[in-house]
């Protein structure tokens, strides 16, 4: 069975998804402090890599990357509540793109599997 990434339409679809997803994140006052002062283009690149990974597209991310990439944020207080907000934005982004519920569930379960790495525990 093809991946959600392929079913969505591959790279161009992920590009569109990144714009929607990142806009939701930037508009969220609860998590915005973790994104202040970062280069928006680099951040969009990371989010594209993240969306590619959780939709099952080509990637080579490891738990170690997720852990090291977020450690400075954990030191700033990043916890489960912030992670939950990001999952919500991911769910609504996919829904906005018309992705079926069962596929959203698949994507969320992949994203969920990174929780302990992201929160460094």
């Amino acid at each position: 069975m093809s991946s959600v990434y392929e079913q969505l339409g591959g790279e161009p679809a992920i590009n569109a998804a990144v714009d929607i997803f990142y806009r939701k994140v930037l508009a969220d006052k609860y998590v915005i402090r973790f994104f202040e002062g970062v280069d928006m283009e680099k951040q969009a690149g990371k989010q594209k890599a993240f969306l590619t990974m959780v939709t099952g597209g080509p990637n080579s991310y490891t738990g170690k990357d997720m852990r090291e990439g977020h450690r400075h944020l954990v030191a700033m207080g990043l916890d489960d509540s912030h992670f939950d907000h990001i999952l919500c934005h991911l769910r609504s982004t996919l829904a906005e793109l018309g992705v079926a519920q069962n596929l959203i569930d698949t994507v969320i379960s992949v994203a969920e599997s990174t929780r302990d790495d992201v929160l460094d525990r």
Binding site: E11, I14, E41, K42, G45, K46, K48, A49, L51, T52, M53, G57, P58, N59, S60, Y61, D65
Partner: peptide, 8 residues
């Protein structure tokens, strides 16, 4: 990093 054309 990602080696998949995403992260640039």
């Amino acid at each position: 990093s990602c080696r998949a054309g995403a992260c640039l």
